[in-house]
Design a protein around this nucleic acid. Structure first.
Lengths: 340, 340
DNA sequence: TCGAAGTGTCGAAGCGCTTAAACAGATGTC
DNA sequence: GACATCTGTTTAAGCGCTTCGACACTTCGA
């Protein structure tokens, strides 16, 4: 194993000089810097992470707590996890993966052991019990999702209310008057998952403003469940011409069912999906969709933590940021003017 | 911050005694152990991870390198990542997430800095350039996937050849004679991805033994691509009655297309999917599928690393294990006797 | 010309833990 | 009763790094 002392000897300087060259925290002459750098290269030196963390009281690791529950579309979770990792690396940080089944105790463990300098929490509930722990430990954190009380931490999320409103506007602009909103399974609403409630609220408000009649129905995302939901919608409101789908699993079945029921998309019925563009492109017809970037979510969360850490490092009090990312509507082939 | 010295003072013992109580590496009297434990509780002590890693030369972290590429079904990757994390925690280890875009350099960085005690590599190519690095660094590793030369490391994977054979056997048993194998996009085969090639080879061999005629066609997993693939299959072999689908994205479109083409499943055509049970259950009809547990994959990989670390710790040479998990065929509603 | 200020490097303390070796006291052996 | 043995605990030496203060030397202003 190559240590900083080996590098120092090789370069003919003291080990503190090597440290300062590497951290840039003190002025070092051009000549010395060059010699040290080439010794580092020659010996293949990588600072020992434990020693560094111990001496500097910073691990250069952030923890990412991912939900075990999979009612949220899994590829999106993965995309967030990967973007958090990539963004963290750009700041010289690594990412520790922990699962939400560890609960508040997991957060305490990570923070108290100094394993991580900061924590990113996914799938945050409105009244999340991990938040008081974070505050008590003085751990820097960023939430992906909105909490009721986010004092002492930063958060970022999609603006789901705006996404819902975009759907309502688009269908209203096309002349649709009766809309069905196919949502997540009822469990998601009972849990008061923010993304589900806020989307629905945003849609509802805008639909009201635009004079739309609409129905909200839950749906589990299987073929059977979608068939049942669609049948009830058409029984209750035969005049429905617009569909908004938030549950990714229901999209394929819905398209199949509309087709086999004799309704052509977009001539007889328009469908707007709330899902990733990548997914929207896979169907026939390609779907008009409202999207927010999962990558941005991860990147912003990491940036927030980095700003908090920098503030603490400089002896200040970190600012509690609250960022909502604006969703985008991409018109494709699944929406068109309402039939007469 | 609570240190081991605080606990020692509180319990009226020396800090080494506290350390021995916690690690169990020396005999400690019942009485002392109780006092120390309750002091740990009372003060909320968590050992500092950096100090521990530095002194013990073990970080109690394993790194998990996940692919950025998403041609493999993402939820499966996520399931593996989560099962690795869960299994690691049961051994008192945490998981560091790194992305494969860091390449061999990432592996070197993690190993040389002592950040992780072991590495789990996903999406391994037959001739993977990270493997020599692992060997050179003497890092303990487990691969998920098979490499050409796995000396010095352990590996685990699904027995994809057996999975392919199961599909052929099932369709042959039902009397089908002409089968189409709908695979991944051509890029996957050009890359010589092990899972794709081995499944196909296993299917091909067994199909040969059972006297089946078959066609292998690549498919990108979009609706258009599946439509094109199916059209070509039916043009080349109008008598095809059995379908094996390995590309998750092609399943939904294939079912839709068969239905709209007037072929009822399973009366006119049988479909066997190579995918997770959860996914197979979502379609109508529910799909007969060949599955391997992604959870087991992660768990076994972690167990392999733990055994390797234990062997090194005991001064021995770790055994290079090679485990293939047996796939399971679950018959559901998408396969039936071949039509006359 | 002298002291002050600035620049570049080093020495050494210390971060919180593990662990080998030393030690104290109880127990057993002849 | 002298000695070895065992059990339970302490002492102290690091692990490899960061960082504070000291120091040597140069440059600058008065």
């Amino acid at each position: 194993m190559v240590t900083i002392a080996d590098v120092a000897r090789h370069a003919g300087v003291s080990s503190s000089t090597v440290s300062y060259v590497l951290s840039g925290k003190r002025a070092i002459s051009e000549e010395t810097r060059r010699r040290v750098r080439s010794s580092v290269q020659a010996l293949g030196y990588h600072p020992n992470a434990g020693a560094r963390a111990l001496a500097a009281k910073r691990s250069h690791i952030i923890a990412l707590m991912v939900p075990l529950r999979t009612d949220v579309y899994v590829p999106v979770m993965m995309e967030i996890a990967i973007s958090v990792t990539t963004a963290a690396r750009q700041h010289g940080f690594d990412v520790l993966l922990i699962t939400s089944d560890e609960g508040p105790g997991g957060v305490r463990r990570i923070a108290a052991s100094g394993l991580a300098d900061g924590v990113v929490l996914m799938d945050v509930e409105l009244d999340d019990e991990r938040i008081p722990v974070l505050r008590a430990q003085g751990t820097q954190a960023a939430l992906i999702g909105l909490a009721d009380d986010a004092r002492g931490l930063s958060c970022v999320d999609h603006d789901f209310a705006a996404a819902g409103a975009l759907c309502a506007d688009h269908l209203a602009d096309l002349g649709h008057r009766e809309i069905a909103f196919i949502g997540y399974g009822s469990g998601v609403y009972h849990r008061h998952a923010g993304y589900a409630e806020r989307t629905l609220a945003g849609f509802r408000d805008r639909a009201g403003q635009r004079g739309l009649r609409f129905l909200h129905r839950t749906c589990e995302g299987t073929y059977e469940s979608t068939a049942g939901t669609l049948a009830r919608v058409l029984a209750d409101r035969p005049g429905t011409t617009g569909f908004v789908v938030q549950n990714e699993g229901a999209i394929g079945p819905l398209l199949s069912l509309l087709r086999s029921g004799g309704r052509t998309v977009p001539e007889d019925a328009s469908v707007v999906a709330l899902c990733q563009d990548q997914l929207a492109e896979q169907f026939a017809p390609r779907l008009t969709a409202v999207t927010g970037s999962a990558q941005d979510l991860g990147r912003v969360a990491v940036d927030q933590i980095m700003r908090r850490l920098a503030a603490v490092h400089d002896g200040g009090r970190p600012a509690d940021e609250r960022v909502l990312l604006t969703p985008v509507l991409t018109v494709r082939d699944s929406t068109g003017p309402a039939p007469h």
